[in-house]
Design a protein around this nucleic acid. Structure first.
Length: 499
RNA sequence: GCCCCCAUAGUCUAGCGGCCUAGGACGUCACCCUUUCAAGGUGAAGAUCGCGGGUUCGAAUCCCGCUGGGGGUACCA
């Protein structure tokens, strides 16, 4: 296994074509962990060379997603750095890429290709029709003298610039993660002359990222597995430019939950912002994502970011794909929620309760205090913060009994239940002070006197007071709800049963 | 189709030739705790380490073939 020798500079270079999904965050995270572990720099660069798919605001959205999980960068579009700008369209305006295209052209390593997209499409269609197994485009211009290419270009004929890929021989590269230590090799005959510069004058990913990586002194390229097939082109391009290639490491993709294909923005609910909206803690997401393709040992899963940074070595990154497992993430989120103090959880719950209209935005001091009072009742019942409003709603709103049958416990009838609720009402009316301990004492005594099972009495009161069969523990609930409201609800429930 | 990568329970993973009667986690089930639901505790089911050949005294671990899965095959990244 290759040793990682400092200095180390890595980057994450998303394309602003939409929101950043968790697979992208995972790739960014691994780069970040790599940089932090080996004491190097992590750079963020925006690759917006696809004018057609460009989405306004996407880059900002992506940065917000990265920041949310706790990823920061040493150089980037928003903070600048020694290699600014960090946005490819801006770099293109500066003529950064064109100069290398000219260098390649002059050296005969690339050529101007005048075949149009339509013609290309036709050629592909013809090839399939003829049963040709693989169509690999090599433009006729690759053998023309540069002057002839320039002549046509001067006439205003649109052209792309393509890499002149060797017809025979092999190209290979070593990968930090896959290949089992052996180089990955492809026959050049399997390659084709890829486009470097579009007819619009905009560079294509292959050229732009490579020029930038070189100029920005990137030492290690850790990117998703889907880039493996294009790595040989990149090696060839580095060679053509006379540059030393960086070290490659292709990260496993994250497969969809059913294993059918990689995570998709369109089909899967995996937009990063969806997770904070639903109440996932960034620390849980960080931990979960770190484990998507990396592991520490045979039993450690819950780790702080510092621990992960310290333990993150590239040799422990998996070559086989990870699988998106929302259940596991949810479980982990529950663990992280339980690790929070009541005050911290209350603080994080406020926005959710506010959004649900249960408290003001911002909340009053009283509301804030009340939320903190309620937190212990739901603390260990929460796996997503977004579940809190529903669990706590009855503390803020009156309950109704659309289905009075829910009030009737096992082995009891409506009239009997009404009578029991009346008895409970009388008993509770006398409880003073209205504390958890006093409430328990009073109700347990009543259970004895009525000859009921604890579950029967408590169940009836629970539904009466919360409007639901599943709720936090009864005595704490009554105590937090207050005497007046508790009694009023028990009374209303008894009436609903005709008592 | 062609090229490339990958392959341990339903899922994620530990394992890098003997510590493995294959460890941990999610999920599932049971029991305990208990006023419901959770949480917590205990335990169970679940993997002939994809299949077939080698190499070796010995293989989940190394090699080959097959199969399966995934990725790529754009003037997208």
């Amino acid at each position: 296994m290759a040793e990682i020798t400092p200095p180390v500079r890595v980057r994450f270079a998303p394309s602003p074509t939409g929101f950043l999904h968790i697979g992208g965050v995972r790739t960014a995270l691994f780069n970040w962990l790599f940089a932090r572990h080996y004491g190097g720099q992590f750079i963020l660069r925006v690759e917006d060379t696809d004018e057609k798919r460009f989405v306004v605001g996407a880059a900002d959205d992506m940065m917000a997603s990265l920041r949310w999980v706790g990823i920061d960068w040493d150089e980037g579009p928003d903070i600048g750095g020694p290699h600014a700008p960090y946005v490819q369209s801006e770099r293109n305006d500066l003529g950064i890429y064109r100069q290398y295209v000219d260098q390649l052209l002059a050296a005969g390593k690339a050529y101007m290709s005048f075949t149009t997209e339509q013609e290309l499409e036709q050629m592909r269609a013809d090839a399939t029709a003829k049963g040709i197994k693989a169509f690999r485009f090599r433009g006729p211009e690759r053998d023309w003298p540069l002057e002839r290419q320039q002549e046509l270009a001067a006439q205003g004929k649109p052209y792309t610039v393509r890499l002149k890929t060797p017809l025979d021989g092999t190209t290979s590269f070593t990968d930090l993660i896959r290949g089992g230590g052996e180089p990955i090799t492809v026959n050049n005959s399997e390659l084709q002359d890829i486009v470097l510069l579009k007819s619009t004058g905009m560079p294509v990913y292959h050229l732009a990222h490579l020029v930038d990586d070189h100029l920005m002194n990137i030492t290690h390229v850790l990117r998703a597995e889907e880039w493996v097939p294009s790595a040989p082109y990149h090696i060839l391009l580095y060679n053509a430019l006379g540059w030393e290639p960086p070290v490659f490491g292709h990260l496993p993709v994250i497969l969809r939950q059913d294993g059918k294909g990689k995570l998709s923005k369109r089909k899967d609910d995996v937009a990063t912002n969806r997770f904070w909206e639903r109440g996932y803690l960034a620390e849980a997401m960080f931990n979960y994502l770190a484990l998507q393709g990396w592991s520490y040992d045979d039993h450690t899963e819950i780790m702080t970011p510092d621990e992960i940074v310290e333990r993150f070595t590239i040799d422990r990154v998996q070559a086989s794909p990870a699988r998106w497992n929302p259940d596991k993430l949810k479980d982990m989120n529950g663990i992280y929620i339980r690790m929070l103090s009541n005050a911290e959880l209350a603080e994080r719950l406020v926005p959710f309760l506010g959004a649900a209209g249960l408290i003001g935005m911002p909340p009053s001091a009283d509301e804030r205090a009340y939320v903190e009072r309620l937190v212990p009742l739901v603390h260990e019942r929460l796996e997503e913060l977004g579940e809190a409003p529903e669990l706590l709603e009855f503390f803020f709103r009156d309950v109704s009994y659309p289905d009075p049958a829910l009030l009737v416990p096992k082995k009891m009838d409506p009239p009997g239940t009404a009578a029991v609720l009346r008895a409970a009402y009388e008993r509770l009316a006398a409880v003073e002070p209205w504390s958890e301990g006093q409430l328990e004492e009073a109700l347990r005594a009543l259970v004895e006197e009525l000859g009921l099972k604890a579950g029967q009495l408590f169940g009836a009161i629970r539904v009466a007071v919360t409007g639901r069969t599943v709720a936090p523990p009864l005595f704490e609930t009554l105590a937090a709800l207050g005497k007046q409201r508790s009694l009023a609800r028990i009374d209303a429930a008894a009436q609903a049963l005709g008592g």
